[in-house]
Amino acid sequence: MPGSVALVATTTLSMHARALHSLVVKKVVMAITGLLLIGFLLMHMFGNLKVFIGPEAYNHYAEWLKQDILYPILPHGWFIWIFRAVIAVSLVLHIYCATKLWQASLRGRGAHDNKKYTKVRRPQQTIAAKVMRWGGLTLLLLLIFHILMFTTQTITFGNFKAGATPYDMFTASFEHWYVWAIYVLFMAAVSLHVRHGFYSAFTTLGANVGPQARVFLNGLAYFAAALIFVGFMLPPTAVLFGLGVS
Protein backbone atom coordinates (compact mmCIF):
# COMPACT_ATOMS: atom_id res chain seq x y z
CA MET A 1 0.00 0.00 0.00
CA PRO A 2 1.69 3.26 -1.03
CA GLY A 3 2.39 5.72 1.73
CA SER A 4 1.74 3.29 4.56
CA VAL A 5 4.26 2.97 7.32
CA ALA A 6 4.83 0.13 9.72
CA LEU A 7 3.66 1.03 13.18
CA VAL A 8 6.49 0.05 15.47
CA ALA A 9 6.89 1.07 19.08
CA THR A 10 10.03 3.14 19.28
CA THR A 11 12.04 4.35 22.23
CA THR A 12 13.92 7.59 22.27
CA LEU A 13 17.18 5.77 22.96
CA SER A 14 19.38 4.62 20.09
CA MET A 15 20.05 0.93 19.60
CA HIS A 16 23.56 1.47 20.94
CA ALA A 17 22.29 3.20 24.07
CA ARG A 18 19.75 0.44 24.71
CA ALA A 19 22.51 -2.16 24.43
CA LEU A 20 24.63 -0.10 26.80
CA HIS A 21 21.81 -0.17 29.37
CA SER A 22 21.32 -3.93 29.00
CA LEU A 23 21.59 -6.54 31.71
CA VAL A 24 24.60 -8.07 29.96
CA VAL A 25 26.53 -4.82 30.39
CA LYS A 26 25.55 -4.72 34.08
CA LYS A 27 26.86 -8.26 34.40
CA VAL A 28 30.12 -7.21 32.76
CA VAL A 29 30.45 -4.33 35.24
CA MET A 30 29.80 -6.79 38.07
CA ALA A 31 32.41 -9.17 36.66
CA ILE A 32 35.13 -6.52 36.37
CA THR A 33 34.47 -4.92 39.76
CA GLY A 34 34.10 -8.36 41.34
CA LEU A 35 37.48 -9.49 40.03
CA LEU A 36 39.03 -6.24 41.30
CA LEU A 37 37.55 -6.92 44.73
CA ILE A 38 38.86 -10.51 44.70
CA GLY A 39 42.30 -9.10 43.81
CA PHE A 40 42.01 -6.79 46.81
CA LEU A 41 40.99 -9.71 49.05
CA LEU A 42 44.04 -11.73 48.00
CA MET A 43 46.35 -8.78 48.70
CA HIS A 44 44.68 -8.22 52.08
CA MET A 45 45.10 -11.91 52.87
CA PHE A 46 48.80 -12.05 52.06
CA GLY A 47 49.28 -8.94 54.22
CA ASN A 48 47.48 -10.56 57.17
CA LEU A 49 49.76 -13.59 56.99
CA LYS A 50 52.65 -11.30 57.98
CA VAL A 51 51.36 -11.66 61.52
CA PHE A 52 53.23 -14.99 61.64
CA ILE A 53 56.56 -13.24 61.03
CA GLY A 54 56.15 -11.11 64.15
CA PRO A 55 54.83 -7.83 65.55
CA GLU A 56 57.55 -5.74 63.97
CA ALA A 57 57.02 -7.03 60.41
CA TYR A 58 53.25 -6.77 60.77
CA ASN A 59 53.23 -3.23 62.18
CA HIS A 60 55.74 -2.10 59.62
CA TYR A 61 53.61 -3.52 56.85
CA ALA A 62 50.53 -1.69 58.18
CA GLU A 63 52.51 1.53 58.32
CA TRP A 64 53.84 1.05 54.80
CA LEU A 65 50.31 0.47 53.51
CA LYS A 66 49.09 3.76 54.90
CA GLN A 67 52.15 5.90 54.26
CA ASP A 68 54.78 4.74 51.85
CA ILE A 69 53.32 2.88 48.86
CA LEU A 70 54.37 4.55 45.59
CA TYR A 71 56.33 7.24 47.51
CA PRO A 72 57.96 9.40 46.09
CA ILE A 73 55.74 9.31 42.97
CA LEU A 74 52.85 10.10 45.30
CA PRO A 75 53.22 12.14 48.49
CA HIS A 76 53.15 10.23 51.80
CA GLY A 77 49.73 8.82 52.61
CA TRP A 78 48.11 9.47 49.24
CA PHE A 79 48.12 5.95 47.88
CA ILE A 80 45.84 4.51 50.56
CA TRP A 81 43.13 7.07 49.75
CA ILE A 82 43.33 6.47 46.00
CA PHE A 83 43.19 2.74 46.75
CA ARG A 84 40.20 3.15 49.07
CA ALA A 85 38.42 5.25 46.45
CA VAL A 86 38.89 2.57 43.78
CA ILE A 87 37.62 -0.14 46.14
CA ALA A 88 34.66 1.99 47.24
CA VAL A 89 33.66 2.84 43.65
CA SER A 90 33.96 -0.84 42.67
CA LEU A 91 31.81 -1.85 45.59
CA VAL A 92 29.14 0.77 44.83
CA LEU A 93 29.01 -0.21 41.14
CA HIS A 94 28.92 -3.90 42.07
CA ILE A 95 26.01 -3.38 44.46
CA TYR A 96 24.15 -1.06 42.08
CA CYS A 97 24.29 -3.58 39.21
CA ALA A 98 23.41 -6.45 41.57
CA THR A 99 20.28 -4.57 42.67
CA LYS A 100 19.21 -3.95 39.07
CA LEU A 101 19.83 -7.60 38.13
CA TRP A 102 17.97 -8.84 41.20
CA GLN A 103 14.95 -6.73 40.22
CA ALA A 104 15.13 -8.07 36.64
CA SER A 105 15.28 -11.63 37.99
CA LEU A 106 12.17 -11.17 40.10
CA ARG A 107 10.36 -9.76 37.08
CA GLY A 108 11.76 -12.46 34.78
CA ARG A 109 10.63 -15.38 36.84
CA GLY A 110 7.24 -13.79 37.44
CA ALA A 111 7.58 -13.24 41.17
CA HIS A 112 5.33 -10.18 40.89
CA ASP A 113 2.55 -12.30 39.35
CA ASN A 114 2.96 -14.88 42.13
CA LYS A 115 4.28 -17.38 39.64
CA LYS A 116 5.97 -20.14 41.54
CA TYR A 117 6.43 -23.79 40.68
CA THR A 118 4.75 -26.20 43.08
CA LYS A 119 7.70 -28.46 42.47
CA VAL A 120 11.03 -27.42 40.99
CA ARG A 121 14.26 -29.33 40.52
CA ARG A 122 17.44 -27.52 39.57
CA PRO A 123 20.29 -30.01 39.23
CA GLN A 124 22.83 -27.44 38.01
CA GLN A 125 22.41 -24.81 40.70
CA THR A 126 25.16 -25.02 43.35
CA ILE A 127 24.58 -23.85 46.93
CA ALA A 128 27.00 -21.01 46.25
CA ALA A 129 24.92 -19.84 43.28
CA LYS A 130 21.70 -20.17 45.27
CA VAL A 131 22.88 -17.94 48.13
CA MET A 132 24.63 -15.38 45.90
CA ARG A 133 22.22 -12.50 46.55
CA TRP A 134 21.28 -12.98 50.20
CA GLY A 135 24.87 -14.04 50.87
CA GLY A 136 26.04 -10.82 49.25
CA LEU A 137 23.82 -8.82 51.61
CA THR A 138 25.15 -10.73 54.64
CA LEU A 139 28.62 -10.01 53.37
CA LEU A 140 27.90 -6.30 53.15
CA LEU A 141 26.67 -6.14 56.77
CA LEU A 142 29.71 -8.05 58.02
CA LEU A 143 31.97 -5.78 55.96
CA ILE A 144 30.49 -2.71 57.68
CA PHE A 145 31.09 -4.40 61.03
CA HIS A 146 34.68 -5.19 59.99
CA ILE A 147 35.40 -1.56 59.09
CA LEU A 148 33.84 -0.30 62.33
CA MET A 149 36.03 -2.75 64.21
CA PHE A 150 39.48 -2.48 62.62
CA THR A 151 39.51 0.70 60.53
CA THR A 152 37.56 3.23 62.57
CA GLN A 153 37.86 1.27 65.86
CA THR A 154 34.30 2.21 66.82
CA ILE A 155 33.53 -1.29 68.05
CA THR A 156 36.36 -2.87 70.02
CA PHE A 157 36.88 -6.11 71.86
CA GLY A 158 39.61 -6.70 74.43
CA ASN A 159 42.00 -4.42 76.24
CA PHE A 160 43.51 -2.10 73.77
CA LYS A 161 43.25 1.64 73.61
CA ALA A 162 42.72 3.66 70.48
CA GLY A 163 46.10 4.12 68.87
CA ALA A 164 47.35 0.68 69.83
CA THR A 165 49.59 -0.98 67.25
CA PRO A 166 47.83 -3.04 64.58
CA TYR A 167 49.41 -6.20 65.97
CA ASP A 168 48.09 -5.58 69.53
CA MET A 169 44.68 -4.73 68.16
CA PHE A 170 44.64 -7.94 66.14
CA THR A 171 45.71 -10.28 68.93
CA ALA A 172 43.52 -8.65 71.59
CA SER A 173 40.44 -9.01 69.36
CA PHE A 174 40.82 -12.62 68.32
CA GLU A 175 41.47 -13.90 71.84
CA HIS A 176 37.68 -13.90 72.14
CA TRP A 177 35.98 -16.95 70.66
CA TYR A 178 32.91 -14.95 69.61
CA VAL A 179 34.97 -12.50 67.55
CA TRP A 180 36.60 -15.50 65.90
CA ALA A 181 33.15 -17.03 65.29
CA ILE A 182 31.87 -13.85 63.61
CA TYR A 183 34.87 -13.97 61.30
CA VAL A 184 34.29 -17.63 60.45
CA LEU A 185 30.80 -16.60 59.34
CA PHE A 186 32.22 -13.59 57.47
CA MET A 187 34.79 -15.68 55.63
CA ALA A 188 32.29 -18.44 54.86
CA ALA A 189 30.05 -15.83 53.24
CA VAL A 190 33.03 -14.40 51.32
CA SER A 191 34.18 -17.81 50.13
CA LEU A 192 30.75 -18.90 48.94
CA HIS A 193 30.40 -15.59 47.09
CA VAL A 194 33.83 -16.03 45.49
CA ARG A 195 33.07 -19.67 44.62
CA HIS A 196 30.26 -18.70 42.24
CA GLY A 197 31.43 -15.15 41.53
CA PHE A 198 34.89 -16.06 40.27
CA TYR A 199 33.53 -18.63 37.81
CA SER A 200 30.63 -16.40 36.84
CA ALA A 201 32.82 -13.33 36.24
CA PHE A 202 35.04 -15.14 33.73
CA THR A 203 32.01 -16.73 32.09
CA THR A 204 30.32 -13.36 31.73
CA LEU A 205 33.48 -11.96 30.16
CA GLY A 206 33.23 -14.72 27.56
CA ALA A 207 35.85 -17.20 28.81
CA ASN A 208 33.44 -20.14 28.90
CA VAL A 209 34.12 -21.51 25.42
CA GLY A 210 33.10 -25.12 26.05
CA PRO A 211 32.55 -27.87 28.62
CA GLN A 212 36.26 -28.20 29.48
CA ALA A 213 36.61 -24.46 29.96
CA ARG A 214 33.64 -24.59 32.33
CA VAL A 215 35.24 -27.37 34.40
CA PHE A 216 38.51 -25.42 34.47
CA LEU A 217 36.87 -22.14 35.53
CA ASN A 218 34.87 -23.94 38.22
CA GLY A 219 38.07 -25.57 39.48
CA LEU A 220 39.80 -22.20 39.65
CA ALA A 221 36.81 -20.77 41.53
CA TYR A 222 36.92 -23.57 44.12
CA PHE A 223 40.66 -22.96 44.52
CA ALA A 224 40.25 -19.19 44.97
CA ALA A 225 37.43 -19.69 47.49
CA ALA A 226 39.40 -22.25 49.51
CA LEU A 227 42.56 -20.10 49.40
CA ILE A 228 40.66 -17.09 50.71
CA PHE A 229 38.94 -19.04 53.49
CA VAL A 230 42.09 -20.77 54.73
CA GLY A 231 44.37 -17.76 54.22
CA PHE A 232 42.11 -15.41 56.17
CA MET A 233 41.23 -17.85 58.94
CA LEU A 234 44.81 -18.95 59.71
CA PRO A 235 45.93 -15.84 61.66
CA PRO A 236 42.78 -15.47 63.85
CA THR A 237 42.76 -19.22 64.55
CA ALA A 238 46.41 -19.11 65.57
CA VAL A 239 45.60 -16.26 67.99
CA LEU A 240 42.57 -18.04 69.47
CA PHE A 241 44.48 -21.24 70.16
CA GLY A 242 47.76 -19.50 71.04
CA LEU A 243 49.68 -21.11 68.21
CA GLY A 244 52.70 -18.97 67.43
CA VAL A 245 50.86 -15.66 67.63
CA SER A 246 49.93 -13.96 70.88
Binding site: M15, R18, V24
Partner: peptide, 26 residues
Protein backbone atom coordinates in the same frame (compact mmCIF):
# COMPACT_ATOMS: atom_id res chain seq x y z
CA UNK B 1 23.77 -4.21 15.02
CA UNK B 2 22.01 -7.55 15.54
CA UNK B 3 23.61 -8.31 18.91
CA UNK B 4 22.72 -4.86 20.26
CA UNK B 5 19.15 -5.05 19.02
CA UNK B 6 18.47 -8.58 20.24
CA UNK B 7 20.00 -8.07 23.69
CA UNK B 8 17.99 -4.87 24.10
CA UNK B 9 14.78 -6.62 22.95
CA UNK B 10 15.48 -9.48 25.38
CA UNK B 11 15.56 -7.08 28.33
CA UNK B 12 12.60 -5.04 27.13
CA UNK B 13 10.50 -8.22 26.88
CA UNK B 14 10.96 -8.54 30.65
CA UNK B 15 13.37 -11.47 30.88
CA UNK B 16 15.95 -11.57 33.68
CA UNK B 17 19.74 -11.62 33.50
CA UNK B 18 21.89 -14.72 33.22
CA UNK B 19 23.85 -15.90 36.28
CA UNK B 20 25.76 -18.63 34.42
CA UNK B 21 24.23 -21.49 36.40
CA UNK B 22 23.45 -23.69 33.38
CA UNK B 23 19.95 -24.99 34.15
CA UNK B 24 18.91 -23.86 30.64
CA UNK B 25 21.49 -25.93 28.75
CA UNK B 26 20.76 -28.97 30.91
Amino acid sequence: RRIKAMVAAHDEAGFGGCTNIGECAS
